[in-house]
């Protein structure tokens, strides 16, 4: 088969993957069932089930050492599962790793660009490794450098780039061969907040302009907010899965902090008139209600004690993590 024909196959993104037709519909890009990986003495992944739809931005959230990278390594055919099955972009990761590799792009946790080559040379190296026809390669190298805002620096040696620029170049490289799924393992680790926001701006552009599924891991809760759906992994198992909004809604309660002229009287009133147990806190009176926004006007009207300030906080993903695992993600990072 010529390179030209192969590449054309690749660019038809929604074509059903023939190899995995039995296990997965074309609208599913990543499917894992009972995926496990043990290393001598360690069970890194203990039965992971995942379903990621085509075109979705899927976040894999968990503390360091929870099994995120190992799961990605198995989905990318870099590690062989000890048990379980997975199909990625319609191909089985164990039965047909070559097909998986052609259809995925990968942005690794640590920087893997070659500093002694220029930005354009790094991309051309990738194009040759993936067998892109020369003319297509030239066009896509220019397109991708443009997409990540590095066109002006295409002839600079990559070792002169900042961390954020190298990251963006890696994203361009990951997309160069028009993969159906782009895996990003901690795409913003080690970057300052401003650069991180910039990388996300580029990822949003990718989502708008390319029909590609983004599968990313993170242990930054703010980043998970960018995703269509997230799965929380802890200790090698998925503990919960859903849209960020749904996961937060499942917690059920908003946090309300109240300041009044007489907090003691307000506390009694809350108990008598609303049946709510409030806690005295350095911040003020702390209570939990199902719908904070609707509660505020009622509270002000019926409390009977003048209210100085009310703050309503929606549950954060940190609360989701705490709720599912019994500890905060920062504590979980600290214990490993």
């Amino acid at each position: 088969m010529s390179g030209e024909a192969r590449f054309t196959d690749l660019s038809v993104r929604d074509a059903p993957g023939a190899a995995g037709a039995g296990l997965t519909a074309p609208s599913v890009s990543v499917l894992a069932r009972g995926l496990r990986k043990s290393y001598p003495g360690v069970e890194a992944v203990r039965g992971v089930d995942l379903t990621v739809r085509a075109g979705e931005t899927f976040g894999f959230l968990g503390p360091n050492g929870a099994g995120k990278s190992t799961t990605i390594a198995m989905l990318c055919t870099l590690a062989r599962p000890t048990a379980g099955r997975a199909t990625v972009a319609g191909a089985d990761v164990t039965a047909d790793p070559a097909a998986v590799r052609r259809r995925i792009g990968l942005v690794f946790q640590d920087l893997t660009v070659d500093g002694d080559l220029t930005a354009a040379e790094n991309l051309r190296f990738h194009a040759d490794l993936y067998g892109l026809p020369h003319r297509t390669a030239r066009r896509r190298v220019a397109e991708m450098l443009d997409l990540v805002g590095l066109h002006g620096r295409r002839h600079s040696l990559v070792r002169t780039f900042s961390g954020g620029m190298k990251r963006r170049l890696e994203i361009a490289r990951g997309l160069l061969h028009a993969p159906r799924v782009l895996f990003l393992d901690e795409p913003t680790v080690g970057l300052d907040p401003q650069t991180r926001a910039q990388v996300w701006d580029h990822l949003h552009r990718v989502r708008q302009q390319r029909a590609v599924t983004l599968f990313l891991t993170t242990h930054h809760l703010e980043e998970a907010e960018h995703c269509d759906r997230i799965a929380v992994i802890d200790d090698g198992r998925i503990v919960t899965e859903g849209t960020p909004a749904a996961l937060k809604a499942a917690i059920g309660t908003d946090r309300v902090v109240l300041h009044t002229t007489d907090d003691a009287a307000a506390r009694t009133a809350l108990g008598e008139r609303f049946g709510l147990a409030a806690r005295r806190d350095p911040e003020g009176l702390l209570l939990h209600v199902p719908d904070g926004a609707a509660f505020v006007p009622v509270l002000c009207a019926r409390l009977g004690v003048p209210v100085l300030s009310v703050t309503v906080t929606r549950p954060s993903l940190d609360d989701v993590f705490l709720h599912c695992t019994g500890r905060t993600i920062r504590d979980a990072d600290g214990t490993r």
């Binding site: 055919t77 870099l78 590799r101 990968l106 070659d114 490794l129 993936y130």
Partner: peptide, 13 residues
Amino acid sequence: EAGFLREMLVAPV
């Protein structure tokens, strides 16, 4: 060690 090897290892060759 620098990670570049993985860029090559995951390529379809």
